[in-house]
Design a protein around this nucleic acid. Structure first.
Lengths: 246, 246
DNA sequence: AAGCTTGCGTACGCTGTCGTACAGACAAGT
DNA sequence: ACTTGTCTGTACGACAGCGTACGCAAGCTT
């Protein structure tokens, strides 16, 4: 029902987001009136910790981080959301907020829908509810994986993993990201990122140039990453297939 | 609608579980035929990583850990579930499994419901769906908090936090737990737990005796814990209040 | 009573990461 | 062309937690 021909067609550009693509044409026509195309700019804050999100966001080319802050000001990324997902699941789960911040890490495009419209749409449309529930589980998997990764794996491994997460959500092999941004996401010192990135650079796996990372050897990057990357990805693919098989 | 008089009454013993307690009498009567009282024994595995859970479990006096294993055999706990929640949310979210293991950490009682019956019940009963969705968010909060805690806080802090999580789900101040069990949950060496536990013992906050921890000074324990404990608990209380206010 | 198992305490060197400080290189604006 | 701000590289001491090894004591078994 959703062929790649559709996806390439600009009339079906919404299908660049996997969740929207999982809807039937009929469902999409119900959602469309409330959907608004948006541009996400770098470092834009989509919602703050403790405030109820005003919109649900469906990125197509943009990439968003969910960041968790500690009292002492340190931060850690707990999830990455690109064209594979949606920002603002808490609107579905509780209708309110979560204690984290949604920050645009890669500028780009997407759609948004007002919170109330989204709630209404979800409850009149069982298919979308199921799609979002499955994505909630993919989210949980990503978060638990992050928890374990933070405990057991080295910065080298985690940097590799993080680069792959961005790469999967981009159409090129160029990641626009400074070492300081990466250090905020990983929750480590910027210098530690420099060390890890240098190792990758010396191994010819990436090249680095003032905020522009070019991935030269993706397979090698996967080899240096911990299993967390593969595990979370497999799980996401498994759940995504279930969406289309409904 | 749910008074403390009800909760003390053995006829309403199901209300020892907060999620079941949030249902109206009518709803409970719909659920009751499929609910089966169970005894959870120590170290019992409720579901394995990668296998679809056969039941949803609602603990009353038992406490269950969600454990995530790495390839190298190391483990980390990503969530703790007692009378505040339910084990097997993945049945709601995707109808399938998650890549983690549910292990009984404190023997006790509870209820269970066959997977298919639970799915049916959730979809015929909107109130329970909302209750479980809110709990999913509380779960996500707990997991993200764990991720950040693993990154930024010391073992001393994390041990304190973990003891409080058990304490909150028990009716006494005695926790039956060996240092090795704690080390598996925290994902650290057993010796590191010994060190941290000794500090607490020397400070007169706990007493320790071959698998029996007695918490002597709960407030001091909270003081030694990181903010993660308070944050997650506040969030859970907030979401729980929303359930009763529907 | 003796032996075995389980749980806890101690010790020591090692390594990854941190905190901090500073220097060089590139980019953009005046 | 020059300055200023941003991004990246380097250095070094400090230390939390790890891996490993061993000893001891409490409880259970026979």
């Amino acid at each position: 029902m959703n062929t790649s021909a559709h996806i390439d067609n600009t009339a079906f550009i919404h299908q660049q987001n996997h969740l929207l693509a999982a809807m039937s044409e009929n469902e999409w026509h119900q959602w469309e009136p409330d959907m608004e195309p948006v541009d996400f700019s770098l470092n834009e804050v989509l919602y703050e910790s403790g405030k109820t999100p005003a919109y649900m966001y469906f990125p197509t080319t943009a990439i968003v981080s969910l960041l968790y802050m500690t009292l002492s000001g340190a931060s850690s990324e707990v999830a990455v959301i690109g064209n594979d997902g949606v920002v603002g699941l808490s609107l579905l789960l509780s209708g309110s907020n979560t204690p984290n911040q949604a920050l645009v890490q890669t500028a780009g495009k997407g759609y948004r829908m007002r919170a109330q419209a989204a709630k209404n749409a979800i409850h009149r449309d069982g298919a979308m509810l199921n799609i979002l529930l499955r994505y909630s589980q993919a989210m949980i998997t990503q978060m638990t994986q992050t928890a374990v990764c933070n405990r057991h794996h080295s910065i080298d491994q985690q940097l590799s993993r993080r680069l792959l997460l961005s790469l999967d959500r981009l159409s090129s092999n160029e990641i626009l990201m400074t070492q300081e941004m990466l250090s905020n996401m990983l929750g480590v010192r910027r210098e530690s990122v420099t060390d890890a990135a240098l190792k990758l650079q010396e191994a010819g796996i990436i090249s680095y140039k003032r905020g522009i990372i070019t991935v030269l050897d993706r397979e090698a990057l996967e080899g240096r990453s911990c299993e967390c990357y593969a595990t979370a990805k497999n799980e996401q693919v498994r759940l995504q297939k279930m969406m289309f098989n409904d």
